[in-house]
Structure formats: C-alpha cells, structure tokens
Design a protein around this nucleic acid. Structure first.
Length: 415
RNA sequence: CGGAGUGUGGUGUAACGGCUAACAUUCCUGUUUUGGGAACAGGCGACUCUGGGUUCGAAUCCCAGCACUCCGACCA
C-alpha cells in the first residue's frame, strides 16, 4: 500500500479530551476516529488490524467446530419478554427504538435469547446436536459511562459463540476446548504472557464463570494472580472455597489491575428452558438443551493490545495483527532520488507488495517519516536511501526492540 | 445516575469586561532544503458549544441546557 494513497493522517497531539492511552495513540496514528463518547469509527488502517484479529478468532472458533452466522442488531420485544429482560429496570443498557407503527424494538446488547428462540425452529433431535454457533458483530450497550477509549464503548465489535449440547458431560468437554482456543487467540494476538485464566462470578446456573484477564493498569478489574500457575481469581469471588477449587494458595497470589478480554459461561438450561428448546433423544424422550456463552470483545482486544504493548513513541503491533509486516521508508535527500525510488519500488515488490508492505512514498523529510513510522507501529521498518544504496544493503529496524541491522535482500526476505 | 473539571480555526494553546479574537501546528502556493517532526515568503481556515441574562460594551461575569473527560455507582 502506498502511504500517499492511504486515507489516514498522523498527528502530533491527541485531542485534549482523549485521555486513555489506547484511544489517544490510535487516533494520533490514524486508526480510529472518535464520533462521541464510547463510539469510534475505524479508518482504513484500523479496519485492517480489526480484520486480522477477527481472522485469528475465526480460525480458532472454526477449529473447535464453530459455525459462523450473523444475527440481527434489531431485536424483537416479545422474545425478550419471554425471559423478563425487556424491562429497563432489569437491563439498564438497552438502546430501544420504534417502528413507524409504534412497535418497540431493541438494539442487541447480547444475542443469547434471540439465538435460542431462532433455534427452536431448527433443533428437535439429538441428531441436530451439538451445535456451536458464533458471530462477530456489533453490539450496542447504553453504558451509563463510556470510558477508557475502546475499552468500554457503547457500540463495539464482539465475537459471541453459543454452544448447544445434549448432555452436561458433552458441554463440559467443549468448555475445556474453548479455554484452550481462547488462550490460543490471546497468545496469537501477542498478549498471551500477560493474560490469565481467571475464576469469576457466575451466572444464575453455574456457580462460577471464567474470564480471561490481561494485566494492565488501565483495567477496571482487580484480580489475584498466581504467576507460576498462570491462574487468577477475580476480586469479586476471592474466597477459600474458590481458592481450593482452583488449587491455589492465598500466599502465592499477587494483586493486579486487569482488563477482561474474554469470558466464558456455562448457562445450563437458563435460556433454553424458557424458550422450550428441547431435543428428543434416541428413545424419543424430550430433554433440555445445555447452553453456554463465550464472548470476546474484539475492539476491546484491539484496545488492550495497544494499551499494553505500546511504548513512549507509539504503537507496537505484534506481527500477527499488524496492518502491514514492513514499513518501507524511502529517504530521498542526500542521494540520487530517482535511484532511491527505483530501488524502493523493486523492494516493495520483492517483499510482497500491497498487503505486506506500507510504502512511505511521501515527499517528506526523514525525521517526520521516522516519527510516523514509530507511531504507526509496523513491526519492521526498512529504510532505502542514498546511503543504503551505496552499501548495497537495507537498513532494517525492529520496532519492538529498536534493534537496527543492515541486511542484504536475501536476509531481509528471510525475516 | 451522584460528584468534580473543561468547552476558543482540523489539532494544541493564548487573550484585564474594551481595537479586526492572537500564537503554533495542520492544509494550500512558491523558493531553498533533505537520515529523527527544516528555513523563508505568501495564503485558506472561528457567529469563541447552545440559549438566555447583566453591561455603553461579553470568549471573559451570571443562569440554564448540551457535549466531553475524570472519580464513584453500574457492568448480561
């Protein structure tokens, strides 16, 4: 991608009202635009990152039998009334609207009810199970207070998977698989070593749920971490019973602030029973379906990665989700501009072109280009200039470590 | 929803109740430059959040509303 053609612009200063580190950097680097409190538009650079995160999530969900679908953002009142959750006093994050004829609609803040209701038309037999359905979709929540940039928004992207099993045992087996899939996702997104499997308070059905918490001072949660065992307990359920269940000793725990990047719930028949979602087993007997819900805030995950991995001069993307692998920066001054451009264009192709390389072809001074490069945070910066042409090598800088090396083309391609 | 703070060109800031609202940056033209946000010259860009009030006169003082940020509560 030619940087001159990329619809984006960096800025030296973040807007004064954007205090959170993740949003300030993403705005300055041109990934997102703030529309209002808790509501952000994603610019071309931002959508590339978001899509890469989504692809990691999809890959892991598909690997454990997930099937993707998209439910509607507009939701029916009658479906919600079946479980008594339409009332604003019960659910305080509703955004509601009306059809022209006055009928009330809700903008989905979750899709458990809607999906269960939908499945009553499709699931009747043990042969229809198990079923693992997920979507990556915008959620709307009328938060009393949006905050922390992308972390707690009113409109945000979420991956929500729902499991439907014939037996509790089958669900438990799936639950173990999703734990692994989730840790894979966070590891692939570069925050595996600071993200902890965490015991948390449960829903109505199960005693506990589990969360995935990433250590960060910007977090809203407080957790107690056993760093050796890589397990944590949320402050809200810290008691002896939980500690014993988790195999933890109070004296091994350290208290940390953290961001909840994912959570998983066993919901039992909490939703399936009210909707009458049942199946007939081999003997023709009707039985309840066991359900589970598994969420990852995709945009929150993006914010968390920026929040935890960036440094004083800008964002540091892990290679897996960086918008580009290489940032090719040509420096025209002090050399034969024509030759430098020629060399840069050749290298651009050799490295893989449009999707792999962001090519800073803008006619700017070196300092400004380097600053932009640091801010945007692409893993490898490659400088082509009169200097590098002379030596027949390329200057390669690792954004994360800051290490600078002079490499021949073949070594560069091997990165 | 309770408390606090802040609203001035796109962005960051300035302006005693008193001249045509200033400076920097961004952006546009041109010249000269070119390895860590260059220099010079010229130019575009603001009903000072909105509505009332006080005053000869309001960006400035008062009231109300709205927005944003922070703290708290809340967070299936």
């Amino acid at each position: 991608m030619l940087q001159s053609k990329l619809f984006t612009k960096t800025r030296k200063e973040a807007p004064r009202d954007e205090v959170s580190k993740n949003a300030a950097l993403l705005i300055r680097a041109g990934y997102v635009h703030k529309e209002m409190a808790g509501v952000y538009s994603y610019l071309p650079l931002g959508i590339i990152v978001l899509k890469k995160i989504e692809e990691i999530v999809r890959k892991e969900m598909d690997a454990i039998g997930g099937r993707e679908l998209v439910l509607t953002a507009l939701q029916r009142k009658d479906v919600w009334e079946k479980v008594g959750r339409w009332d604003d006093n019960t659910v305080d994050v509703w955004f509601k609207t009306n059809l022209k004829d006055g009928m009330e609609l809700g903008l989905g803040f979750t899709h458990d009810e809607q999906l269960v209701n939908l499945l009553t038309e499709y699931v009747h037999s043990y042969k229809d199970l198990p079923l693992y359905l997920y979507q990556i979709h915008t959620k709307f929540r009328n938060e009393l207070r949006a905050k922390s940039g992308l972390m707690r928004g009113r409109e945000f992207l979420m991956k929500d998977l729902y499991s439907f099993n014939a037996t509790e045992k089958e669900q438990d087996e799936f639950y173990e698989k999703i734990k692994i899939a989730y840790m894979n996702i966070f590891r692939e997104c570069g925050i595996g070593d600071i993200t902890y499997f965490t015991y948390a308070s449960g829903g109505t059905f199960s005693k506990y749920s589990h969360e995935f918490q990433t250590i960060s001072d910007a977090g809203e949660d407080t957790i107690y971490v056993d760093e050796a065992k890589k397990i944590a307990v949320n402050d809200e359920v810290l008691n002896d019973e939980v500690l014993v269940g988790a195999g933890l000793d109070r004296k091994d725990l350290v208290v940390k602030k953290s961001i909840e990047v994912g959570n998983i719930f066993k919901q039992g028949t909490k939703y399936t029973d009210p909707f009458g979602l049942q199946y007939q087993d081999e003997s023709g007997q009707k039985k309840s379906v066991y359900m589970g819900g598994y969420g990852i805030g995709v945009t929150r995950l993006m914010g968390t990665i920026v929040e935890t991995l960036s440094d004083s001069v800008g964002i540091v993307w892990p290679e897996s989700i960086a918008p580009f692998k290489f940032h090719l920066v040509e420096i025209l001054g002090g050399g034969d501009a024509h030759k430098v451009k020629e060399s840069a264009a050749e290298l651009y192709k050799a490295l893989g072109g449009d999707d792999i390389v962001l090519y800073d072809d803008r006619d700017l001074r070196a300092g400004e280009k380097f600053s932009d490069s640091d801010l945007i945070g692409i893993p490898w910066r490659i400088v082509v200039s009169g200097k590098t042409l002379e030596g027949g090598m390329y200057e390669v800088k690792n954004r994360r470590t800051g290490e600078v090396k002079m490499l021949l083309l073949q070594d560069l391609l091997a990165i």
